[in-house]
């Protein structure tokens, strides 16, 4: 892993963290990415706290130090405390997370796995807790979190040590 980023941002200070990142170097896609991030947080068919659990599960698997340090304001407002965030870990199945939250993590793990995909038991468990519309919504969120976190990681320069927890407003990361 590189100690410094392969590519740096455009040097702008627009106030939007995505536009001011390296993604600002491709004008034809950056606005779509910003809009997508906003839509995921504002228009998804599951709660912000469940989205945050998916995002943090992804961040943990991808090992994006930046993503792991962020907490979205809407998820906190929805009641996701740090105590509950800490449960999104290896032993989540035996934790106090709700069955629906555990099923969401199982979906994230199926998506993130090598190979990606799921067995019948996992598929049945997810279908028991979520409608097909909700599953589609979570898949869109997972893809969004995954490609943005992997963009940060693949660009190099990721800190080795954990960063302080920082609250992120949807307004500065979404359109």
């Amino acid at each position: 892993m590189s100690n410094k980023p392969h590519v740096t941002g455009p040097g702008t200070n627009t106030g939007n963290v995505i536009r001011d990142s390296m993604m600002g170097l491709v004008p034809g896609t950056v606005s779509e990415i910003i809009a997508l991030n906003g839509h995921v947080w504002r228009d998804s068919l599951v709660s912000p706290s469940l989205l945050e659990i998916l995002r943090l599960r992804n961040a943990r698997t991808v090992n994006c130090v930046f993503c792991k340090s962020v907490r979205y304001d809407v998820a906190r407002a929805d009641g996701l405390t740090e105590d509950r965030v800490e449960l999104v870990a290896d032993g989540y199945e035996t934790s106090d997370l709700a069955p629906r939250e555990k099923a969401a993590i199982a979906l994230a793990d199926a998506y993130l796995g090598f190979p990606a995909g799921m067995d019948e038991e996992t598929a049945g468990r997810i279908a028991e807790h979520f409608s097909e519309d909700e599953i589609a919504s979570m898949m869109v969120a997972l893809m969004t979190y995954n490609f943005t976190s992997r963009a940060a990681v693949s660009n190099g320069g990721m800190p080795e040590d954990p960063l302080p927890i920082t609250e992120m407003q949807v307004a500065v990361a979404g359109g």
């Binding site: 779509e32 809009a35 997508l36 839509h39 995921v40 228009d43 998804s44 068919l45 097909e132 519309d133 589609a136 919504s137 898949m139 869109v140 969120a141 893809m143 969004t144």
Partner: peptide, 10 residues
């Protein structure tokens, strides 16, 4: 597409 605006955005 059943996921609505976020899916359309993606």
């Amino acid at each position: 597409s059943r996921a609505g605006p976020a899916a359309a955005s993606f």
